[in-house]
Computed example of a mutant assay.
Amino acid sequence: MQGGDADEFIDYMNDGEASVRHRGYVYRFSGLKYHPGRDTYSVSVEKYRFTREPFEEFMELVYNYESDDPDDVLDHLAEDILWDGKSFYELEKALTWIDW
């Protein structure tokens, strides 16, 4: 991963959201979110067109996972297919961690 370490990026999901750039798009990782009414945790990934204004052109939700176990959520984020038929660690070499 350009701009940071892939494992550090996944760990960062405990503290907040982060974004990566890939093939002219920005993917916004929501970070680990707690939903008190359901007593669950979730993480999602949204795809945006790379523009001058952050998150101006939403394209689609590419990933969402929810569980009552926060570690399970982060494990799935690392192992599930996210986009282009690949998991996070299969994509990570082509991703650039950005502050957008």
Rank of each mutant, 00 (worst) to 15 (best):
G31Y: 01
A78L: 05
P70C: 12
Y89T: 05
K93L: 13
V43A: 11
A6C: 07
A78I: 01
F50V: 15
M13N: 02
L95E: 00
N14Q: 14
D71F: 12
L74T: 00
E46S: 15
F50R: 13
V45M: 11
T51G: 14
H35G: 10
P70E: 04
K86Y: 11
F58V: 07
D5M: 01
D71A: 10
R21M: 11
T40C: 05
G4H: 00
V43T: 07
L61K: 09
Y89P: 09
A94W: 11
F55D: 11
G24R: 03
Y41S: 07
F29K: 07
G24Q: 05
H22C: 06
A18W: 13
W97Y: 04
N14L: 09
V62P: 04
L77W: 01
R28L: 14
Y48V: 03
H76P: 01
V20R: 05
V43P: 03
G37N: 13
I81L: 12
L95A: 00
A6V: 02
M59W: 08
Y34A: 15
H35K: 15
V20Q: 05
A94E: 11
D7R: 12
S67Y: 02
S19V: 06
R23E: 10
L82G: 08
Y89Q: 08
E79P: 06
E56F: 01
D72P: 00
M13P: 00
E57T: 06
V62S: 06
Y12Q: 14
I81P: 11
S67G: 02
R23K: 13
